[in-house]
């Protein structure tokens, strides 16, 4: 398995297309977290997001022969599937008149401290509380954004994807991505300051 790590996504796709499930497994390892975050940002639910990720990879595996590397990267293609699956689930839930997004204030924000070496570990209980409150406020604010703004902002700020890539995933123009991210940031600043 160790050798797979040196291969590019495209090389893995080609090998997986010849029927090797092990190569596809490496793609799963690489992109599960990202697909989950996109699904979670849209569905707002851990369980739904996990279902979306499973369905997304299954569809990707079945349709690997339809992936065209000249049109997009594997990551972009996969996230497009994940986003469409998430939206399908949301629409399905809405049809069933189920509430998809909980605004309960007592929900766990499900935030973890970054593994980024630049981020400092809290020195004492007071600092820990302060950081938790800041992250909690961030999570709450994100949940209040419209889905498209939240997805665009998270793909940029968490995954550092280019505007072109985000536009491809969300099936919108680059200028729409600019607008979505700008409005998301303005709204976030407003919400966090409150």
């Amino acid at each position: 398995m160790g050798n797979f790590e040196t291969l590019s996504d495209q090389e893995l796709v080609t090998a997986a297309g010849r029927g090797s499930q092990a190569y596809f497994g490496e793609l799963v390892d690489r992109h599960t977290t990202l697909a989950y975050r996109v699904a979670r940002s849209i569905t707002g639910s851990h369980e739904e997001a996990e279902d979306v990720v499973q369905e997304t990879f299954l569809r990707a595996f079945k349709n690997l022969d339809k992936f065209d590397e000249s049109k997009s990267t594997f990551k972009t293609w996969l996230l497009t599937i994940a986003r469409n699956q998430s939206i399908n689930i949301i629409n399905s839930l809405r049809r069933k008149t189920l509430k998809f997004f909980s605004d309960h204030d007592d929900d766990d924000p499900e935030i973890e401290f970054s593994s980024n070496p630049l981020s400092q570990q809290p020195r004492d209980a007071e600092e820990l509380l302060s950081i938790k409150q800041q992250f909690y406020a961030m999570d709450k604010a994100l949940k209040k954004l419209p889905e498209r703004q939240r997805t665009a902002l998270l793909l940029k700020s968490q995954e550092n994807m280019s505007y072109d890539e985000i536009a491809a995933v969300m099936d919108v123009s680059v200028s729409s991505v600019e607008s979505l991210i700008f409005r998301a940031r303005k709204k976030m600043i407003e919400l966090v300051e409150r």
């Binding site: 989950y36 979670r40 997001a49 996990e50 990720v53 935030i111 961030m138 994100l142």
Partner: peptide, 15 residues
Amino acid sequence: TLATVKLSLPDGSLA
């Protein structure tokens, strides 16, 4: 802040 907060991590067993 957004870049350093790890929001919405999946379970380790998801892959």
